[in-house]
Design a protein around this nucleic acid. Structure first.
Length: 302
RNA sequence: CGCGGGAUAGAGCAGCCCGGUAGCUCGUCAGGCUCAUAACCUGAAGGUCGUUGGUUCAAAUCCUUCUCCCGCAA
């Protein structure tokens, strides 16, 4: 099939890799390059770079609402639009533009976790599984009829990064499988009573609140590993926490109980034993490595 | 030119401000002790102190070039 692809982050790249082998990608739409990163350089999105490497035309409109942009998109005369974490809303005119409509790859088992950060929110909430939903897009966000789903388990060690990679992979395969069988699939409406929303990740929620329950905190740390990463401040320095486990011990929340041979800090109900950490200016490392040359003062309240 | 931290033994760090034979914790290897151990004791190996040039009697340390890594902000 002839396809116009719309996507932005890393998540979309494995999907493109797979898609390009089985279909014709006429054009790629992605977010415009913007000033970002160290040195404030102008950086192109991962999808943008992929498209350039494959010599496929790239468009980076700020919006698809204008007639002009829609006319450009229409000129490709594609059969189908594919969307994977694009970041722009598609107007009805765009959805109607393609004979086969627009199909979206979403990283959750819809109707659970519609929205911006389904991968992290699923882990944070303690879900036992996540998955990919392929859906026929509707105007309302992530509300379209589901064409296919595939689940994957979330276990005690699954990080946000792990799940991201796994789902991108599943998404690529499931999308291609779905496209191959598109004519035989019966779309299924989402059960509106089961809808939940995955709030966008916010920097302000990354500062660890040690009054939280240990178990919830550990889940959030896992969900936010490796990005955006939960952290705490100690003597004016930021420490990102990548891995931690619940630990039986009770005291004033936020107190360093043991900072010499391991790092145990109390929480609202219990305590967490931090096992992987990153200092400013350093790579993430196991706590044992850090403690060979760096020590936390016992009894310090964070 | 957005702000800032860092590169020292296999790992993690100190030393740098106030130049003077490179150190700590751990790991590794050898030996010892022990019923036994991730315990303890003794000993050993292992570093052109990221790169370039300079200052100096002398540079990990002061100045300079470049490379790489990372935190913040957006």
């Amino acid at each position: 099939m002839k396809i116009v692809f719309m996507g932005t982050p890393d998540f979309a790249v494995p999907i493109l890799d797979k898609l390009v082998k089985e279909h014709v990608i006429l054009a790629v739409y992605t977010r415009a390059p913007k000033v970002s990163g160290r040195g404030n350089r102008i950086n192109k999105t991962p999808v943008h770079l992929w498209a350039e490497a494959h010599q496929i035309p790239v468009h980076t409109p700020k919006s698809l609402k204008s007639e002009e942009e829609q006319a450009i998109m229409r000129s490709y005369q594609a059969d189908l639009g594919i969307v994977a974490a694009y970041g722009l809303l598609l107007p009805q005119a765009v959805l109607d533009m393609y004979p086969k409509g627009c199909i979206n790859v979403h990283a959750s088992l819809l109707p659970r976790w519609r929205g911006a950060a389904p991968i992290q929110r699923a882990i944070e909430a303690g879900d036992k599984q996540s998955g990919i939903s392929i859906m026929q897009m509707a105007l309302e966000l992530d509300a379209g009829d589901v064409l296919a789903q595939e689940a994957t388990p979330i276990n005690k060690n699954t990080t946000g990064g792990d799940l991201h990679d796994t789902l991108a992979d599943i998404g690529a395969n499931l999308l291609c499988h779905t496209l191959a069988n598109l004519d035989t699939i019966t779309p299924i409406k989402q059960d509106e009573s089961l809808v939940t929303y995955a709030e966008k990740l916010d920097k302000t929620e990354c500062l660890i609140d040690f009054k939280m329950a240990a178990e919830k905190l550990v889940a959030k740390i896992r969900a936010f590993n490796p990005y955006p990463a939960m952290y705490f401040m100690y003597k004016g320095e930021r420490f990102k926490v990548y891995e931690a486990e619940v630990c039986d011990m009770s005291d004033t929340p936020g107190k360093i109980i043991d900072g010499k041979k391991r790092l145990v800090i109390t929480t609202g109900d219990n305590a967490i034993n931090i096992t992987k950490i990153q200092r400013e200016g350093k790579q993430p490392m196991l706590i044992n490595d850090l403690l060979r040359g760096f020590q936390f003062d016992n009894g310090t309240l964070i």
